[in-house]
Amino acid sequence: MAEATQPDSDHEEDSGRRDFLNYLAIGVGAVGAASFAWPVINSMNPSKDVLALASIEVDLSKIDVGSAIKVVWRGKPVFIRHRTEKEIEEAKDVDISTLIDPETDAARVKEAQWLIVVGVCTHLGCIPLGTADGEPRGDFDGWFCPCHGSHYDSSGRIRKGPAPKNLVVPTYTFLTDSTVKIG
């Protein structure tokens, strides 16, 4: 095994060069691996057909004051509520600084009587109850998420429970007084 002995410290130059080649090889390998890893990981991101989302148009004329409907947008429910005067007042009267996720009611609606929010609890994604008649609306006249007990108010803001954020307001525009385009 004598010939297998490594030439060492007396060949400074050689080992420096060998180290360099080692680092170079490892470096090139790492860059190669990383550039292969990205497409692999990225293949799991939403695909083009999923991203090509249609927007939807909703007819509001059939929603009575005080009731609400659920429509599907991007595979998720959107709540549209025709708010009563009382609900609008409640939403406006809150002292913003006491809120978990402070936002004024005015910043969350375009027309005071129409509240439009994505119906997905910001805690862990359940659909809060309170849209259909007879469902519990929680302590603040809005929605109640049965999964872990989040209460949302009549502006869709989180008031009590584990959810960190208000219900999301999607982008929408009123096409006429009674039709809205979501997305």
């Binding site: 991101n45 939403p46 999923v50 991007r74 997905v120």
Partner: peptide, 8 residues
């Protein structure tokens, strides 16, 4: 969204 491969 990466886990889902979509929006839900």
């Amino acid at each position: 969204q990466w886990l889902w491969g979509g929006f839900s």
